[in-house]
Computed example of a mutant assay.
Amino acid sequence: MRQSVSRMRSLFKKLDQRLLPKNREMDGSLPYVTLIYLAFYCFPLFFQLPSFGETLLIVSALLVFLFLYFHLHWLSPRKRWRNLLFMWLLGISLSPWYSGGISFIIYAAAMSCLLENARKAALAILLIASATWLAGTLLNMNQSMLYTALFFVLMVGPMNIYLVDLGKKRRALDLSQQEIKTLAASAERERIARDLHDTMGHAFSMITLKAELAGKLIDKNLEAAKQQIKELEALSRDTLAQIRDAVTGYRRSGLRSELVNTKMALETAGFSFDSSFQSCELSEKLDDELALILRELTTNIIRHSNGSHCEVNIRQVNNTLTLEVTDDGNNASIEAGNGIAGIRERLHPFGGKLTITTGQQTRLLIQVSV
């Protein structure tokens, strides 16, 4: 059984490599899932059996459509309009005598999302809708069928534009986060190497000197040699503690470190960024939690904000720490989710509170007693 499943997976992988490019805009198996809607193309056959000639024409049209569909993914965005045009022509030619033909018209609108940008995709959808209405009127297409086609063209097309744009943003975010992790890891490795070099270089020099001195004194002045050995022991313990501190600092990611990651992530996503950080006395646990909160807010801004500028201000006034994140996007629905509940849960053990202000800009203010 397992061997059969493995063979099927291997076969599908080879078929996928032949049918679709590796780097495609539609993620994973989505291009194949989308073909499920071809069931509507075949649906009229259950109600009226066509002649042999009509059946041959219907099957031939389906094969031509499948070629246009898969070939479209291999083309550059600038050249894809040709395949969309042929899909539409195929659908409009079939529709007057075979109602399943409107499926190809809808597919042409749905696949417009793969053009160069959202503006051109929206223009293509409007052209498809207008041309369909004009051609359907001239060809005396059934009115209910014509309006059904127009409804799905204007519904599915924009929805696919949004989904593809969301996928691009997610891939860009994943890539930027991966780059940030790589850069952060590299910076931390350099820091730990520098700290260990400074700590251990000095410490081992002192240990060597004291060991040599103790060796020279052991036959001449035993008490002085014992004193040097005691100092050597204390120095070794102190060095070990410093090494542990350096390693602990390597493992933790505090608020200041996360602010650097925030800057890199937002600038990678196309935002301009300003920040201010006033030194604060925080416990390790609160420092780590605030770093995670800032990371969550940064992710939300990249995914959901329609703005272009973000500002982060961290300051402490008396015994209150304030973390303020502002962006110039207008997101009135931010209260509904976007990780806000999780942020409030993180703040609860520290008695912190989150205040959200929306309007011409979105402002999130976190206040915690320290």
Rank of each mutant, 00 (worst) to 15 (best):
R2H: 03
Q3H: 00
V5L: 10
S6G: 11
L11K: 09
R24C: 02
D27G: 09
L30G: 02
L35E: 06
L38D: 12
S51R: 01
T55D: 10
L57W: 15
L57D: 12
L57M: 07
L62T: 02
L63G: 09
H71K: 06
H71P: 04
L75V: 00
L75K: 02
S76Y: 06
P77S: 01
R80D: 14
W88K: 12
I92H: 13
S95N: 07
Y98D: 06
G101P: 07
G101S: 08
I106M: 04
Y107T: 00
A108R: 05
A109W: 04
A109N: 01
C113D: 10
E116D: 05
A118H: 14
K120P: 03
I128Y: 14
A129I: 09
S130K: 05
T132Q: 15
W133H: 07
Y147W: 05
F151Q: 14
Y162V: 10
Y162F: 04
L163I: 05
V164I: 05
V164P: 02
K168E: 15
L173A: 12
L173Q: 06
T182G: 06
S186T: 12
L196C: 06
M200L: 15
F204Q: 04
S205R: 03
T208P: 02
A211M: 00
I229K: 06
I229E: 14
K230Y: 05
K230A: 03
S236F: 09
R244D: 13
R251V: 12
S257V: 07
S257H: 12
K263A: 14
A265L: 09
T268M: 12
T268D: 13
A269M: 07
S272L: 07
S272R: 09
S275W: 15
S275H: 15
I293P: 10
L294R: 08
R295I: 11
T299C: 14
I301M: 10
S305G: 11
S305I: 03
E311G: 00
N313A: 03
R315C: 05
T320H: 04
L323N: 02
D328Q: 02
I340E: 11
A341G: 10
I343T: 02
L347Q: 01
F350Q: 07
G352P: 01
G352F: 03
I356T: 13
T362Q: 01
T362S: 09
